[in-house]
Write a protein that binds this DNA or RNA. Sequence first.
DNA 1: GTCGCTGCAAAGTCTTTGCAGAGAG
DNA 2: CTCTCTGCAAAGACTTTGCAGCGAC
Lengths: 158, 158
Amino acid sequence: MPEVTTDFNYKTIKYEELLNDFKILLKDNNLKFTVQRELILKTLYSCDRHLTPESLHQLIQKQYPSLKIGIATVYRTLALLEDSNVVTSLSFGAQGKKYELGAKEHHDHLICTECGSITEFVDEEIENRQKNIAKALNFLMQDHSMQIYGICDKCQTK
Amino acid sequence: MPEVTTDFNYKTIKYEELLNDFKILLKDNNLKFTVQRELILKTLYSCDRHLTPESLHQLIQKQYPSLKIGIATVYRTLALLEDSNVVTSLSFGAQGKKYELGAKEHHDHLICTECGSITEFVDEEIENRQKNIAKALNFLMQDHSMQIYGICDKCQTK
DNA sequence: GTCGCTGCAAAGTCTTTGCAGAGAG
DNA sequence: CTCTCTGCAAAGACTTTGCAGCGAC
């Protein structure tokens, strides 16, 4: 069996580079570079977890108490980032979406139904197979996502 | 390449059988068999589309105008059916969930980003690969789902 | 008859929008 | 200066809950 890897390189891009791309994106669309937008990007970059708009907002408020930032701005910026394919959103059974930086290598998710933790993995074989299926069904694939639900290693030993 | 099939057998169970299982389920849990519950089950069975609570509610009202059914009952019954693994819910980028009968063979989804249509498919190779991955990562798999997003055949020719 | 179920409406979540002032370019 | 952004609060969309009467068993 080919290897499955979960410790693939998270950050395929340096923050400076990401930030620069973001500035270019903004300029190209006649949008403005603001402290709020930068901190949302930076927080998404530095946090490995998958964040809800709510938790992202709280995290920013905790880390930068002097800055006022409204939840509406978080939603608006996440929508902007998602439209520009800078972040990707995941929606599960529960309410709400979780966001993650899309600048990482493509990967799929193992979701623990006990503790809600998300582990990522990549598997070449599945990636290839998906491409083949789309081709066979004359479906123009833009994106795909796969989730495996179950009990994670930690929760099994509890 | 092994075949990919989209015309697999939808109904692996006859309605009478499904209904009977449902009645047993209800009895076992001291729950009552009501017209509303039956019609929700029947509508889910006879409709091939993936339904939102909203659309399921409208469909029932249209088909059985004499019956009064509240949206709350639809939500309550869907929750009950989902807990009992009779139906499965899918949540995508958009708001809300869609439900489908879980009594079919397991399958994955092709979702058109143009028209929102959902095509189902099964692929043995991916199914097997998923099992192997879960095993390799010591993850106790309970369920899994895969979605491929893109432009469907019809929308490409438009 | 009992006790769960239902429709209704009200209350909850989560998300989006309108607006007037603040701030980037 | 101009025109976009922001925070706030109000509005929306979707879902859940409390309740009193109804109905299955």
